[in-house]
């Protein structure tokens, strides 16, 4: 069990946002956190890597309470791909090398350089390595963020809407990469997402959040139209195409919605 969340609660200035959150994540699996806008998906991720302090409950990574670790120690155990990163005038190589920050004391070692080089090759970023990040497209930036989290060499990856600003090809590529890394290296991934179809296709487990708490959890194959309807408030059909489940939303009547 790489990650165990036990009865976690969190509130922004005493207004409860999350409550009674408990779940576990295993190595080699991707868990996707789903739910409507503002339900607390990002907040939950930030509680896991202690960017936010939960008001109640425990987060255990490999059996150790995250609250008892300092920030660098946490960064050695949890890689984090934030929803946005700001492009500055540094090269892609240096932007990725930053992920070695928790391991670097004073000087960048040869090992750090080799790891970055390896990650760059793995993600097919060779041709961009010495280009400035502030001249790159959204898809390229997202790959660099992913590479930065990968070179942290952690057993747990948190990804906050890794595909939210990407086109179809980049979405597929990034999610495929994440899945491959998780399976090949036997690490665990937890990501938030809005696209249910991508979730069904790339994740192993799901977690539905509704009103700040867990509405349902399990294998993605078990997601039913009824669940989606009660979480998102919209009727759907789930079809199968070439073995993949596909979620089709039903029309919303405008008068009904208003």
């Amino acid at each position: 069990m790489i990650l165990k969340i036990d009865n976690l609660a969190f509130g922004y200035s005493s207004r409860p946002t999350l409550d009674k959150i408990s779940f576990t994540v295993k190595r080699g699996e991707i868990t996707v956190i789903l739910g409507p806008n503002g339900v607390g998906k990002t907040t939950l991720l930030k509680c896991i890597n202690a960017i936010l302090k939960p008001s109640k409950g425990n987060v255990l990574v490999d059996g150790d309470a995250i609250a008892s670790l300092d920030t660098l120690a946490i960064a050695k155990r949890i890689g984090y791909v934030a929803q946005y990163s700001e492009p500055s005038r540094v090269t892609a190589f240096d932007a990725i090398l930053m992920g070695r920050r928790p391991h670097i004391r004073w000087r960048v070692s040869d090992k750090d350089l080799k790891i970055v080089d390896s990650a760059i090759k793995r993600l097919g970023l060779d041709h961009l390595a010495l280009k400035y990040v502030d001249q790159m497209s959204g898809g390229e930036l997202q790959k660099i963020s992913l590479a930065r989290a990968l070179v942290q060499e952690t057993d747990l990856l948190l990804l906050d809407e890794p595909t939210s600003s990407l086109d179809l090809k980049n979405q597929t590529e990034i999610l495929g990469l994440i899945k491959r890394v998780v399976k090949e290296h036997n690490v665990a991934g937890v990501m938030t997402m809005h696209d249910l179809n991508s979730a069904l296709r790339y994740a192993d487990n799901y977690l539905f959040l509704k009103n700040g708490t867990i509405y349902g959890a399990g294998k993605v194959e078990e997601i039913s139209p009824g669940m989606v309807e009660s979480v998102y408030g919209i009727g759907v059909e789930i079809l199968r195409h070439n073995g993949y489940p596909v979620i089709i939303p039903k029309d919303i009547q405008i008068e009904k919605a208003a």
Binding site: A73, I78, Y80, A82, E86, S88, A95, R101, P102
Partner: peptide, 17 residues
């Protein structure tokens, strides 16, 4: 390194400790 990380955005910087 810390300034470089802060340039990349607060969340990203926190993520790398």
């Amino acid at each position: 390194w810390n300034y470089n990380a802060a340039d990349a955005g607060d969340e990203t910087a926190r993520g790398i400790g």
